[in-house]
Amino acid sequence: MDENLKELIINNSDSIVDNWMDEVGRIKAGNYTASISDELYENTNREFVNVIFTSIQNEGSSKVVEEFSEKIINLGWPLSYITDGLQIFRRVTIDFLLAQADQVDSNHFSNVLTSVDEWIEPLIRQLVNEYSGSWENILSLQRVALQELSAPLIPVMERITVMPLIGTIDTDRAKLIMENLLEGTIKHNSEVVLIDITGVPVVDTMVAHHIIQAAEAVRLIGSTCILVGIRPEIAQTIVNIGIDLSKFPTRSTLEKGFTKALEITEREVVDLHVKNQGIEDIMHSLKGE
């Protein structure tokens, strides 16, 4: 790193900062940051350029950069704000340094370019890393959250369990569904498991295949699987693409499926007479008045 150039920049930081602020201010309008208040934008810009200078002065002080990137990430500003800002800084600085020189030969020119790159590169690398680190973090959190939502099994009654499925089913999820389904069936000692596909937007051959496999596995462990939530358009596609679901009981709604489940487990729902009686009594007493 050329110490003379570095000194030159540090000593003239004011004019470089001014130029930079100008340019960055100009890109605001055409940017995602357009909705941010002018004051906040300017303050952040000033902080940003300070971070750049601190980093150049200390030849890569990662602590300040880390704090700054953390702040920007928390504010939810796009990565392009950082990369644009650093690009502009590079341009402004190069312009400035070249303008300062009495004569520009190719040696000096390449010296300037190399020095500026040496200052900027580690900054870009660190900031981009901070950003992508935060994205990866979010992604893995969401993956875990999604997995938890993926295949819940609800014991609704002794010996009857329901698994509501929502969203698209791919191969990985199908495996998870199958595992939860079977482990849960054993755990709750369920004789009947209802799979509700009301929330599955599209049932193609692949999805149907996964569901059939799950139902067959349930049968192997000694329980019965009822497929419910079959909407008219799903019934149409299933028949049109020639999927055979005849081996399993199916019902249009969870309610009907539940009745079937009760039938299989040899039980039924009985209205308690008392309640009706009560209403009749009330009606009667009203008439009497």
């Binding site: 079977l182 054993i186 496999q213 067959e216 596995a217 349930v218 192997l220």
Partner: peptide, 18 residues
Amino acid sequence: LTGIQPAVAMTLIDLGIH
């Protein structure tokens, strides 16, 4: 047949044995 374990059932399904 009783007590087929989930892992066993899944393996059978993968093998194409129903």
